[in-house]
Design a protein around this nucleic acid. Structure first.
Length: 320
RNA sequence: CGCGGGGUGGAGCAGCCGGUAGCUCGUCGGGCUCAUAAUCCGAAGGUUGGAGGUUCGAGUCCUCCCCCCGCAA
């Protein structure tokens, strides 16, 4: 098939690679190169790198829904358009181009977690299961009819980054099956049940601040849902301490007895041998990996060699 | 040339107004112990990111370079 692939970050790469391996005739549309990190170097989207590697033509538009983009898409005369974490809205003109329609690969079990951050949000919300869904793209935000879905459990300590990779792979497999069944005409699009739909918004900086007055589990879910990026943090005086990994503590009886009066956010244990343990709303949580301003990420035990945090208390989160 | 922080024994840090480097952990040896992640005694280990400069003398001041980190995007 002639397939136009619209995608941008790593999440879309396994799907693109799959399409390449399947021998489809491809054109890639992705976001423009953007200035990244310090300095001013332009960085190519992951999908562009993968496409160039395979010698596939790449088109980059600020907005593919504008006439220039629509024209370029139409000029390729695709049978099918596939989108995966593209990051741009499509117009009715875009959707009218391919005869088999436009298929999107989404990182959640729709209709749950429509929107920009389905993978992070599923973890942060404490979900024990998630998955990927392929759907027909419509003009709404992830509201199109569902084609296929694949479920997967979320590990207790699984991070956003880990789940992201797994879902990207799972998405590629599901897309493969989806396309095969489109070709054979054995798919029946099922409308989403809007009553069950939930929406997730892009993660904002304030979402990443830890509120130690919450239960330990909620904090743990937030931290792993934001790892490796944008990373949860807590304020200690003027400094923002980034918290990369936390650890739930099974037996808390002794701690409770000893530090019952500690306030949420207080470091009740902070030593090179025992690591860092902080009081939370319903108990205690271990900080396994953290990062001070200007420094690299560190195992908490290593960090405790030079910093004396015992008795220090993380600031109360300021509600905005 | 977007803004800022930092590079000191294996790790994390200290070192004020310049006088050849200190702490915690780890490592190694030994003690205690049924045993130990616990504890005690002792030891090894650093051309202080690199190159110049100022100085009687620089980790500490100046210049340039390299690398790391955060913000912004």
């Amino acid at each position: 098939m002639r397939i136009a692939f619209l995608g941008t970050p790593e999440f879309a790469v396994p799907s693109l690679r799959m399409l390449i391996a399947e021998g489809h005739e491809l054109a890639v549309f992705t976001q423009p190169d953007r200035p990244k990190d310090r300095g001013h170097a332009l960085a190519m989207p992951a999908v562009k790198l993968a496409a160039l590697e395979a010698g596939i033509p790449v088109y980059q538009f600020e907005k593919i829904r504008l006439p220039e983009g629509v024209e370029a898409l139409a000029a390729f005369m695709p049978d099918l358009v596939v989108t995966a974490a593209f990051g741009q809205l499509l117009s009715a003109e875009n959707l009218a181009v391919p005869k088999y329609g436009t298929v999107n690969v989404h990182g959640s079990l729709l209709p749950k977690y429509r929107g920009a951050s389905p993978i992070q949000t599923a973890i942060i919300e404490g979900e024990e299961e998630t998955g990927v869904t392929t759907m027909l793209t419509s003009l709404g935000m992830d509201t199109g009819d569902i084609l296929l879905a694949a479920k997967t459990p979320i590990g207790e300590n699984e991070t956003y980054g880990e789940l992201y990779s797994r879902l990207a792979e799972l998405g590629a497999e599901l897309l493969k099956e989806t396309i095969a069944r489109i070709e054979t005409g054995t798919l029946e699009p099922v409308p989403q049940d809007d009553a069950l739909a939930t929406r997730c918004r892009p993660i904002k900086k304030q979402d990443a601040e830890i509120d130690f007055s919450l239960p330990s589990k909620r904090i743990h879910d937030l931290v792993r849902g934001l790892n490796p990026a944008p990373t949860a943090f807590a304020r200690l005086g003027e400094a923002n301490i980034r918290i990369h990994r936390t650890q739930l503590i099974p037996q808390q009886e002794q701690l409770l007895e000893k530090f019952a009066s500690a306030a949420p956010g207080e470091c009740v244990i902070a030593s090179p041998k025992q690591g860092l343990i902080v009081r939370t709303g319903d108990g205690f949580i271990g900080i396994a990996e953290l990062q001070f301003p200007g420094g690299k990420r560190l195992e908490a035990k290593a960090a405790m060699n030079g910093k004396k945090l015992l008795g220090c208390r993380f600031e109360q989160k300021q509600e905005v």
